[in-house]
Design a protein around this nucleic acid. Structure first.
Lengths: 217, 217
DNA sequence: CGCCTCAGGATTGTATACAATATCCAAAGA
DNA sequence: TCTTTGGATATTGTATACAATCCTGAGGCG
């Protein structure tokens, strides 16, 4: 009965297990995570549990209140808006850099990621969210900028969190065309177009999510 | 004999103590930090020490090798270049947003921060680095965007780290004028000028640091 | 009936004990 | 002399024990 792959360190296993559970929506935003209970379920002590929880808290997936434990983060409307403002800038930069610096292997990976995303069943929200995340992370990786990858990773994760919270999924009809436009511009090594396509994608999506979060504009 | 202010939690005290030590350059990049020795010096157990170290590692100030402990991060030339590419984008965004959204209190704080920075003795590298960090963080705060503040904080910290590593300080003659230009554009609520001033500042500074990184290799 | 008080239990924070892994040095062999 | 190997030592990783804080609810008092 193994709950997670076996990295060398227990805390890394717990981290990966919990990260996936949160990003897949298996643990709902706002839900509490008790150290003792989780440790019992996974068959490990509280020490690696705590270290994994702290790491996820630092990444913004969980929130911690002193002496009261951690919960899956719930993103406020203001925080979501802030996130999309920054994401528009960073995703645009990532796409522009990817257009300039991507390798043949990057191109293959991006094509495969997009194909997988488009092939996902319309009703499988979990797969959609996961594959959408994978595509955008692929763009970031193709930019070959370590600092950008680090920051974008946190943002993309938070976006996934927001999607679960608002139950907004990639149902928008323009999504597929926009993804294609981003990929095409990158493959054509057209940095300016890639940047604008990525920014447009964020600008299209953000209002949808904000609407579900209950804030106009 | 107290080594750090005492927040409610010991780990937060250790975190603040170490963060300042690293950002002030009291612990050199590459230097190793042993848990037991540090715990003994601070009079606390290894548990809060480990949690503080993990947090600083996650923030990018330290690096951790499995079973081999943590060291103050040494930033490679490629990582530094990546950092400045992203920073140009984010600092530009921060300045633009600050121009649009800053309050009267923000304006006062920014003026005070810049005055303090300009008043710092030319030879006091520690004060210069700390006050420069404070000014840039002030701009970020004035942008009133939580997601941006979070990301920019990490970048600014890394820049401070790079400065210590390369021994590049704010000696450049244009620095003072550029800071003034950023502040002036923000106060005038001229978003476009503020963005460009901030970007120009990064573009001026980055080559200096990169040059020193090439030498100090 | 409503509000306050205060045990009791439960949960997190910290300290310590134990296990696993890496580092270092000295001795043996080619 | 150089390399290798083995174990002693030190350090990190994990588990457990203890302390401090918070939540709950029953009972008393106004």
């Amino acid at each position: 009965m193994t709950f997670f792959e076996r990295p060398a360190l227990v805390r890394d296993g717990v981290y990966g297990h919990l990260r996936r559970a949160v990003l897949d929506g298996d643990i709902a935003p706002g839900e509490r995570i008790g150290e003792a209970e989780l440790g019992e379920r996974l068959g490990v002590s509280r020490t690696p549990i705590r270290e994994a929880l702290m790491r996820l808290t630092q990444e913004g997936l969980l929130v911690s209140e002193a002496n009261k434990g951690v919960r899956v983060r719930t993103v406020s409307a203001a925080e979501a808006r802030d996130t999309y403002v920054v994401r528009e800038e960073l995703d645009g930069l990532a796409a522009a850099l990817a257009a300039q610096t991507h390798t043949a292997a990057d191109a293959d990976a991006l094509r495969a990621a997009l194909a997988a995303l488009n092939a996902a069943p319309g009703g499988d929200y979990r797969a959609q969210t996961r594959l959408d995340l994978a595509f955008h992370q692929g763009v970031t990786l193709a930019a070959h900028n370590a600092a950008l990858a680090e920051l974008a990773r946190g943002l993309e994760q938070r976006v996934a969190l927001i999607k679960h919270q608002t139950r907004t999924y990639n149902a928008h009809p323009e999504t597929e065309a926009q993804h294609a436009a981003i990929l095409q511009a990158i493959l054509a090594r057209d940095a300016a177009s890639a940047r604008e396509a990525a920014r447009q994608h964020v600008r299209t999506f953000a209002p949808l999510v904000m609407q579900n979060l209950g804030e106009s504009r």
